[in-house]
Nucleic acid binder design. Sequence first.
DNA 1: TTTGATATACGAAACAATTCGTAGATAAAC
DNA 2: GTTTATCTACGAATTGTTTCGTATATCAAA
Lengths: 125, 125
Amino acid sequence: MKIPKPTDAELEILQVLWEYGANTVRFVNEHLNEKKETGYTTTLKLMQIMHGKEMLSRDDSNRTHIFDAAVKEEDIQKELLDKFLDATFRGSASKLVMHALGNSQTSKEELDQIRQLLDQLEGGK
Amino acid sequence: MKIPKPTDAELEILQVLWEYGANTVRFVNEHLNEKKETGYTTTLKLMQIMHGKEMLSRDDSNRTHIFDAAVKEEDIQKELLDKFLDATFRGSASKLVMHALGNSQTSKEELDQIRQLLDQLEGGK
DNA sequence: TTTGATATACGAAACAATTCGTAGATAAAC
DNA sequence: GTTTATCTACGAATTGTTTCGTATATCAAA
């Protein structure tokens, strides 16, 4: 199966569906509007395009269609991360990781999780 | 000072200058061509635009101009990372970190560096 | 000093992503 | 049953990015 690469606007829509599950255009549009004014038909058009690309599934058995993400969050994240890592950090994962941890406030629990992963990775070296 | 956000093509040019230092359009173009065929004037135009945006400095005391990055690699990386983190991982740095480390092969030295950073971060909690 | 290679400048084409207006269908409210 | 609100469909405008063709200048080699 081939994974389509979402554009920025498409990704925003996916985020809403990943977070809240299958929903209407109106619901998605209203969520997007919390961050940035967007016309209803703009969101509609985008979701139609995404459906065309098989990025979204659509239940059109009722007048008001229900859309859902047809791609896995993790798959898309992995795909975008690969590209970003390469373009921005020339492939150096450790640099990216250091920046990411340096900038943001990450909880102790999350840091411990990362530490566990390090143990696991380093175990195999 | 305001940091301009480079586009994809602009970032590729910055990467060359960050890696090799101040250089000519031809040099940059030839490096870009290793990855992807690009016309000379395309690269030239882009670098002129970037100069206009004050993303690159230019020494035009000779016929062949010498360009250099006028923005710090770290600053741009931080800026792009923030945006990417938000757009793709809804701000969860730990998720991004786990993905990044999971996907790529990172050396033992790098992993140790990350571990040190963790110690440091966790020390303050 | 003519020819050829190589430089900059820059308008405009080509391409891609996003936004919006409008038409037409359906449902709900009156 | 007529009006009003809400839905989808979709063409087209807008905006942003990238690519390229062409004009013109400069330098070096013949």
